[in-house]
Design a protein around this nucleic acid. Structure first.
Lengths: 80, 80
DNA sequence: TCATATTATACCTTTTTGGGTATAATATAT
DNA sequence: ATATATTATACCCAAAAAGGTATAATATGA
């Protein structure tokens, strides 16, 4: 078992969309052009990934990396 | 000159927020703990960056990496 | 159950990032 | 204009990602 973040929202998004389209990891790897290992690390929430590779996959789903505010449990915005 | 994407939205976000707080790249580098070189590559829109490093900077601004739909000029959603 | 498909883990290699530093270019202020 | 501060570019090095492949584990279906 690795110590990656399974409920990483990006990871979840990818896996969910992939399953909705009934694609295997292999298929997604082929069609997006990233390695199979990368698809797995991505879906399993490996913390350190290359943004261009992620975007390469997200593009297939019509998405891209962006930023969003972090809110705590009360909905308050954090940070400077 | 490099061929990076200057109007990368994440890059723009970082630089804009940094300037609003009147911080130098050096200051931001120090306070976030990432290297100065990284801050520069980030703001200049280098496409291949490690997500954890970006998040390390975004956290300071109360943000984090996420995904968003790509829309064309008409506002239509793209992709599968 | 049993065979197959899909996903997960482990090992090795190549490639590239990120850090640091030094230097050059640009912006800012007096 | 000129001194200073800030940002940009170029170099090398260590550390780590991504790819490939092989094997194990798990899920799926007949």
């Amino acid at each position: 078992m690795n110590d990656w973040n399974r409920d990483n929202s990006i990871a979840q998004f990818i896996r969910q969309r992939r399953k909705e389209l009934r694609l295997t990891q292999v298929k997604l790897s082929d069609t997006t052009g990233v390695g199979l290992r990368f698809v797995r690390e991505l879906e399993q929430g490996k913390p350190n990934l290359m943004t261009n590779k992620i975007n390469q996959v997200l593009l297939f789903f019509g998405h891209e990396l962006s930023t969003k505010p972090i809110s705590d449990s009360t909905g308050r915005n954090m940070g400077k």
